[in-house]
C-alpha cells in the first residue's frame, strides 16, 4: 500500500529535477538539480531490490561524475558573470519531438508483451554480483578497467597545458 505512494513520490522528484536540469539558466543550479535527480533515482533502485546498484550510483554518479561536472563548471564559466542564453532556437521543435518520443515509447512499450515472472527477487545481491563479475563476466570486467585506464589517460592528454 505504501509502495505506490513511495513510487509516485520518487517519480515526481525524478521528473521534476530532470526538468529543472534541462531548463534552468544558471549552470550551477543545473548541476545541483542533477545531483538531486541522481539521488532520487538511487531511491528507485532500492525500491527495485537493487541496493548494490543504488549504492554504486550514489558513489559513482553523485560522488564522482557530478562533482567532476561541478569542477568543470567552476573551471569554465564565470559564476558571477552574466548568464549566457540557456537554449538555442530548436526549443520548440525539440520539445515537440520529445513529446512525440514519449508518446511513441510508451505506446510501443504498452503494446509489447513482457513475460513477467513470479519469482521472488534475489536477496544477497552484492555477493551474487561479485561472484558473477569474477566468473561469468570477468571479460567485460577487465575490459571496463582498460576503458577506465584509457579514459584517464585520454583526459590527461587532452586537457594538459601546452609545453607539459
Amino acid at each position: 500500500m505504501t509502495e505506490p505512494l513511495v513510487f509516485y513520490l520518487l517519480a515526481f522528484l525524478v521528473i521534476a529535477s530532470a526538468l529543472a536540469v534541462v531548463t534552468v539558466r544558471n549552470i550551477f543550479h543545473c548541476a545541483l538539480f542533477l545531483i538531486f535527480c541522481l539521488f532520487s533515482i538511487a531511491g528507485i533502485y532500492v525500491m527495485l531490490f537493487a541496493e548494490f546498484v543504488a549504492v554504486v550510483q550514489v558513489l559513482l554518479y553523485v560522488g564522482a561524475v557530478a562533482i567532476l561536472m561541478i569542477f568543470a563548471i567552476m573551471l569554465t564559466s564565470r559564476l558571477a558573470g552574466h548568464d549566457v542564453q540557456m537554449s538555442n532556437e530548436q526549443v520548440f521543435i525539440g520539445g515537440f519531438l520529445s513529446l512525440i518520443m514519449v508518446y511513441g515509447l510508451v505506446w510501443s512499450l504498452s503494446n509489447t508483451f513482457f513475460r513477467i515472472s513470479d519469482e521472488a527477487p534475489a536477496v544477497n545481491t552484492p555477493l551474487a554480483i561479485g561472484k558473477s563479475l569474477m566468473t561469468d563476466f570477468v571479460l567485460p570486467f577487465e575490459l571496463v578497467s582498460v576503458i577506465l585506464l584509457a579514459a584517464m589517460i585520454g583526459a590527461i592528454v587532452i586537457a594538459r597545458r601546452e609545453g607539459n
Binding site: 521543435i93 525539440g94 512525440i100 511513441g104 505506446w107 510501443s108
Partner: peptide
Amino acid sequence: LFVVLFGLIVIGLLATS
C-alpha cells in the same frame, strides 16, 4: 544531434509500429 536523434526516433517508431 538533433538530426541523429530525430532519425533514431523515426526508425524506432517505424520498427515498433
